[in-house]
Design a protein around this nucleic acid. Structure first.
Lengths: 221, 221
DNA sequence: AATAAGATGTTGCAATTGCAACAGGGAGTT
DNA sequence: AACTCCCTGTTGCAATTGCAACATCTTATT
């Protein structure tokens, strides 16, 4: 388990907990490691689980089928990422999604009940891991909320304004460098790339903003 | 405080905790009640806080200004609702939103640190309130995730299919009654109402689904 | 330097969508 | 019954957007 401690120290669930403390915690949480081969199913939609998964190595896809049976890739996770935490923490036992290994993968399974119940040893790291669990959920919430607000807008221009408003706030400045290229930005905003380019051009022509590559300056009072 | 116990018992944060236990918990959490007049600002964007608010009575709007200074109403909350929990739980001290009372309002302020730290009395309800806090965040997450998936679709038809797929899953049946009228559904999907009607008509004509008012039947294998 | 592969900008065109205006229907009130 | 209010469906029209095809530019690799 020693080789896992590097991964876990960087995992959001174990932030601020020392390696030695982590290994004690894992014992106390009765964590179980399991390996999966490429293309193996880690969790099937409809399965019951009260376990939260931590990706020790490899990578998986989170998949959901729609009404017409089309497979929809919701996310692709790598080392250190959590999965199944959302519905397990919500007290929903049946998984709404499938999880499939796309490489040979190792997963550390944690029992949610063991995380939130104080253990017999009443170890001090429990408080920290609970705090981290809450933080993980809350941050995901903020991310989703932000994206939701943006996607709620009807036009590309409004979506862009929403996104740039966020950036401006995070950078505390009217000038900032965005972390997306055009293709990625179009994906994030869920619009056509060429239409995005077109709209950016218009907005610059109208004097609302300036940009060179990923460096933006917005002109507002 | 006795008159608050009815509200709090129904509040998601105190679910499963008895009235007597709640009042003990409030003491131990050092909860503070505060009243606000209509139009008074409860929390201003940019303010620091490590408190979570519970609406005891009245109602508030969550407001955020965009780059052009336009005020955007993100939500309207009523009795029993929580606010500020997302960013406080994420460890973000500065509020990204403003909260304004739109009626005379009473708020119960809870210190987040007191919630997650075990109290000197090591009272048993702490575990429960933490579990509830996690559940609240996780459920909001699921809601936002679902909506996000739907809003990510490019066409009205795809958005409808996404929404109806969710309904079908929740009801475990191809026939179900949706909780939205047309106007509300259009708002939820962030599309034009008349365009929504038009698309529903087309889909019915193509034999994909049938509906009478809010009763839907989807035709899939 | 040459080449390849991927990202970005541009533009015409067709399809979708939003908007506006209007008509019909249901629920509640007087 | 007459009236009002609100929700829903319909349709023409204009604007926006997605799509496709292509040119240009960047970056990495050999």
């Amino acid at each position: 388990m020693a080789d896992n401690s590097i991964v876990l120290k960087a995992c959001s669930l174990f932030l601020g907990i020392k390696s030695l403390e982590i290994s004690m915690l894992l014992t106390c949480l009765q964590a179980r490691e399991k390996a999966y081969l490429k293309n193996e199913i880690v969790l099937l939609a409809g399965d019951k689980t009260s376990m939260i998964g931590v990706l020790l190595s490899g990578s998986v896809q989170i998949i959901k089928e729609d009404m017409l049976g089309r497979k929809n890739i919701l996310a692709e996770l790598t080392q250190g990422d959590l999965f199944a935490e959302t519905f397990v923490c919500a007290g929903i036992e049946v998984s709404p999604v499938s999880v499939v290994a796309i490489k040979d993968t190792r997963v550390l399974w944690l029992n949610y009940q063991h995380i939130i119940s104080s253990c017999p040893n009443s170890c001090a790291y429990h408080t920290k891991i609970i705090e981290n669990m809450i933080s993980v959920l809350a941050r995901k919430n903020i991310f989703l909320n932000t994206k939701n607000t943006i996607l709620s807008k009807h036009s590309i221009r409004e979506k862009l304004l929403g996104y740039l408003t966020e950036c401006r706030e995070n950078f505390h400045s009217n000038s900032f460098t965005i972390p997306f290229g055009r293709t990625e930005l179009a994906d994030y905003l869920c619009v056509d790339r060429s239409a995005l380019s077109r709209e950016l051009g218009k907005m610059q022509a109208e004097g609302m903003l300036d940009y060179v590559k990923n460096d933006f300056t917005v002109h507002v009072k």
